[in-house]
Design a protein around this nucleic acid. Structure first.
Length: 457
RNA sequence: GCGACUGUAGCUCAGCGGUAGAGCACUCGGUUGUGGUCCGAGAUGUCGCGGGUUCGAACCCCGUCAGUCGCCCCA
């Protein structure tokens, strides 16, 4: 051997591109299984779209202020611009819109699909913020009209999923729902030149001390240029304050709240309130406090036109939303000459998973999917050990046959380190019994590979 | 894109001008057919990178890159 040191490129993680150890990945897979099972329980079908879309598809809706990753060949010629420019998708809604438009004639409507894929955003990574991460989306798209019941189905499905994920038992989360028509209606009636600034402030309400928020809201309303000079700025402030200062647990409460404004609200706002009330009514079967109506929810994506959702940890709302979405009037209009309204919601899978992982909210003792490690004494007894392993695999157990006839001590230590719960001892000599050892209990007993059952947990 | 802070062993960090350290993890051993604990031994570093100051730099200065956190925005 040469004494010279081999040059190594010291590996380091790429920030914002997470990867997990086997024991964490095992839990992640359980999460995916759980989510998939419930999506399918409600009749949603699975699709997968490519990681890339043409840049034209991604930007068809107009300006894209997302940090988009663009694909480029290392070997491309400088003057070669013949190929369409490709970009990694930053969500699953745009690819869905393209997909629906493209396969319009082959799909059955209302089209209900789920999609669990990675998406990419070139933003600055932070806790709970990645550049590559999983989203689990469900959407329903229909032609011309989409019943409002679906707006209630989205959070109902998500609540069922979130509350059943391993590790979520002790988490205190809340889904918040609003309807964009409510606030947008107010601004349509009482037009203010800086309405988007005001909306952005309202959306951040939770992060700002309330006294400070009030002052800022008032300043913005006073600064804004009115489209109609007759409008009373005090009234706008009063309406906005009343509507956004607290959460509502029921439809009744919302209506109670706006009664005093009566005819001062335009039909669009009323419509929004009616829709939100309907959705809240439909969700009354969920546990108390699980879902609240909160009119301060605005949400960034510009294609939402009605219902909007977000979900936060009550003890740490600034971590960001872990499950959000909304309704859009016409998603695929940029790709097909049809009117296709939809509603969808998405789990920020990686954000949620990483938080619980860091908190140690779920067990990560198993580094292997194996239920049983099969001991190998000597090469002479290998075929018997292998046959025993096959028998157990046929009975649906995951069995790993130890790779070399090493000391038992070593084989047990291997099982221990990988978190394999059982170790199987084939007969040491012909005529002797099989034995199974429960690693956690430290107990060992005779066993028959044809009818042994693992302990019920 | 802007701001603050941080880069030393696989990980967490100490050292802050005189030739690189700890804990954890890792490998081997503590004899016959049995893990975790304990004991013993061992391996491990361009002190992020480049330049400057100095007899001498992990340490001081300048630059640069990377990371973390906040802002923006969002899952």
């Amino acid at each position: 051997m040469s004494e010279k040191k081999k040059a190594v490129y010291k590996p380091k993680p790429v920030s914002g591109f997470p990867e997990w150890l086997p024991e964490e990945r095992l839990v992640e897979q359980k999460w995916f299984d759980h989510i998939r099972r419930i999506f399918e329980r409600y009749g949603y079908c699975s699709i997968e779209t490519p990681s890339v879309e043409e840049l034209d598809v991604i930007s068809a809706k107009g300006e894209v202020d997302k940090e988009i990753y663009v694909l480029e060949r290392l070997h491309k010629d400088d003057e070669d611009d013949s190929e369409a420019r490709l970009a990694l998708h930053f969500d699953q809604t745009v690819p869905l819109a393209r997909y629906v438009a493209q396969h319009f004639n082959d799909l059955v409507f209302p089209f209900k699909r789920y999609q669990m894929q990675r998406v990419w955003r070139g933003e600055r990574p932070q806790a709970g913020r990645f550049r590559e991460f999983y989203q689990c989306d469900i959407d329903v798209i229909n032609v011309d009209n989409l019943p409002l019941h679906f707006d209630a189905e989205m959070p109902a499905i998500m609540w069922e999923i979130l509350s059943g994920l391993p590790g979520m038992e002790k988490q205190n989360i809340r889904m918040r729902i609003s309807n964009r028509k409510i606030l947008l209606g107010i601004f349509e009636k009482y037009g203010l030149s800086n309405s988007s600034e005001i909306l952005s402030l309202i959306d951040k309400k939770e992060k700002i001390p309330s006294a400070h928020f009030q002052k800022k809201l008032q300043t913005l309303i006073n600064e804004g240029e009115l489209y109609n000079e007759d409008i009373d700025r005090k009234l706008i402030l009063s309406i906005l304050t009343k509507l956004t200062e607290k959460e509502f647990s029921s439809a009744k409460e919302i209506k109670e709240r706006i009664k005093e404004f009566g005819n001062k609200l335009i039909p669009k706002t009323r419509e929004g309130i009616e829709e939100l009330s309907f959705v809240m009514d439909q969700l009354s079967h969920l546990p108390k406090g699980a879902v609240m109506a909160d009119l301060s929810i605005v949400r960034g994506l510009d294609y939402y036109t009605g219902t909007v959702y977000e979900t936060v940890f009550l003890d740490d709302p600034s971590y960001g939303s872990i499950c959000s979405g909304g309704r859009y009037d016409d998603l695929a209009g940029s790709y097909i000459n049809k009117h296709l309204p939809g509603v969808g919601i998405s789990i920020g899978f990686s954000r949620l998973f990483d938080r619980l992982r860091r908190q140690g909210a779920f067990e990560t003792t198993r580094k292997s999917p194996a239920d049983i490690l099969m001991i190998l004494y000597t090469e002479e007894r290998r075929s018997e050990a292998a046959a025993t392993a096959r028998m157990l695999r046929d009975r649906n157990y995951n069995v790993e046959l130890y790779h070399a006839p090493q000391k038992i001590k070593k084989q047990l230590s291997y099982a221990e380190r990988k978190g394999i719960p059982y170790v199987w001892f084939p007969p040491f000599e012909d005529g002797q019994p099989h034995e199974i050892k429960n690693m956690a209990e430290g107990t060992q007993a005779e066993a028959d590979p044809q009818n042994w059952e693992k302990d019920q947990k």
